[in-house]
Nucleic acid binder design. Structure first.
Lengths: 202, 202, 202, 202
DNA sequence: CGATAAACGAGACGGTACGTCGCGTCTTCTG
DNA sequence: CAGAAGACGCGACGTACCGTCTCGTTTATCG
């Protein structure tokens, strides 16, 4: 992670334009050869940077990748761009768009590459979670809260638990079963699991 | 995976007692330093074996680890030791035993370390799936089928999908949210998600 | 070498007091860690200067060092301070003073550090030679010429060759044999080699 | 330096054929790009070896080079191949052969590259001296001793000093003055300096 | 029973990425 | 604008691990 500690006044300033360039290069390489195949040299070379410049900003390959992934901002998840169809089912189904699905799947696969690192570094895990997992959960939480507010579903449901269903199912399918994240599957999860769980049975 | 290909008659027999010793050493190291931190040398040294002896049995670090995890035989999952309480809920809840939970969690964490490898090797993924994921799924499938057979739940439910719910939720919680696999949580998943999904609402 | 090219009128004048300070710092570091161990950063830091200030004055580490050594002005070698005893032997022996010896030895050791650079850069070699080797040769040449002029030795002697004897012997002893530059040794060289070579046998 | 410490019985033996191959590669690279330009990777690649294999045998670039140079055995300097003309002058002149000169010059140039390292490592210096400088001195010592034995020159001459004259002059010329090691020059040194020094004046 | 062949512990091998450090240049701010 | 501080691109350093190969030894089976 880029640490900014004390205010460094003297000397040449970090060239802040290099950060996104390096992160972009990292994402590029990452999507081409995966985490294991990725090399700091590859990233540096592609960003026309020296290795030292990379290591000056991130302490290790893992931290660089985490930051890179964190910067994969998913525009579709921004509050003002979220659907508001009037029904929980409508909202949930509205999130099943090719672009959204695709980005999610890419994030998940990157996350997979990081799992082993995450396992041995709580702080790294936290960053990864905040960047990749949390945003998607927040969306589901919002949909559920709106449904509660409009009386569509009971206020007793465990929002946190229900919000994580679709993410769990999708992660499992993609990472463990290694199957693609198909729209049909997502629809099936919503209709057969999420909605019954909130009392909106078939 | 231990390959036995052609019948090798000549020469010294492979010392079969070394297999479990090496696997145990692997599990030990694995739990201490994680997949990334683990070294074939570490495992070999700890098992008082040579690296060649390890590589004669497994083609790569990844395969060794998968086998090691697969060999964490979960006695609880063997067909004849499974509960049969007469109700789906009873069966599912009966699986929530400290020992079972603990073993599952360990397996999952090891699986996490392998994710990046799995991502780049379909066959490795298949092996890992068969060894770690599938057994647990089979149990759920069995429970569901029995419930269908006894008319407790509709024969229309998507057994495959429902069977994967608890595994998905638990994996997500452990790997992504990095929280422990508590019994309360598992009960909550069963009562609030699985059962509603098969029409056995609250 | 300090290059002054065109007369720079505009802006702040180059602080000429920095030159000797940097050179002194260079000599200091040089004597502590040797040429290989010396770093431009070390020199700059010790002189409380920036690296750019150093590089504005010298094109490379090697040139800085050469200049530093060249600036170890050996007052003893200035024409008007040279001995003139009336005999070649007297002149040569008169140069054997602790301070002179010491300075020569230090110069030689620094020169050693530069050898590899010198080997790959004729111009650098030329500079180093002019700064370190030549002054000492000039003295010997002068002594020999005076001896010829006063008829002490034959005009046929190869002045250039003879002048280089003592320097050669001393360099070899210090650099190759790694022995100190003792007065006895120098006297021995003069009496047993130089003087016989010009026909002034024992 | 290759250390052999305790007798290592277990495990695969060092492939002793790799040593000379690596040393040869080192000498090759050395003569092409010089000490500064030489890279361990270059040497390893050229010897079709891994870097680790090089570092397993030598602790640093410097030690590798020293050893490489030490292995530049000069066949001409072996006792039984030395000339024995019956006169000191004859013996000395007999050493002025193109091949001998050439090898000496190469050694000297390599030595130059090592000077900076030598300056900061007495043991390295010792090795370099024994490998490069000493053999040549031994030859001169032998010639002088034979001359003394046959009564050609006085037994009073400082053999050690005289033996080092030609080496000193040649080193100086090659390294400091950066001139080639010409036969005429060597003859001049013998006739004008060495012989007068032992009382065999013109 | 001796020969043969494979397995064994140990560790060297070729290869490749790691993270560090120095060079010489470039950029920023301060006096 | 010179100067101090320090980031930059580059590239070598020496280390560590991978998966393979070789050594000397042990252990089984075959002839």
């Amino acid at each position: 992670m880029t640490q900014l500690d004390a205010p460094p006044k003297l000397g040449r300033k970090r060239d802040l334009t290099r950060d996104p360039e390096i992160l972009d290069a990292a994402l590029e390489v990452l999507s081409e050869v995966g985490y294991e195949g990725m090399t700091i040299d590859m990233v540096a070379t592609r960003a026309k940077a020296g290795k030292a410049t990379v290591y000056r900003r991130w302490d290790s390959k893992a931290e660089l990748v985490i930051d890179a992934v964190a910067c994969m901002k998913q525009a579709d998840l921004e509050p003002d761009k979220l659907p508001d169809t009037g029904t929980l089912r409508g909202d949930l189904l509205a999130m099943i768009k090719p672009r959204t699905i695709d980005e999610s799947e890419r994030k998940l696969r990157v996350m997979a590459g990081l799992m082993s690192l995450i396992a041995s570094s709580p702080e790294l895990a936290e960053t990864a979670h905040a960047a990749i997992v949390e945003p998607r959960l927040a969306v589901n939480r919002l949909f559920l809260q709106r449904a509660i507010d409009r009386g569509e579903i009971s206020a007793d449901v465990d929002v946190e638990l229900i919000a994580s269903i679709s993410q769990s199912m999708v992660s499992y399918r993609v990472l463990m079963l290694r199957k693609a994240m198909k729209p049909e599957y997502m629809r099936s999860v919503i209709d057969n699991i999420v909605l019954p769980a909130v009392g909106l049975g078939r």
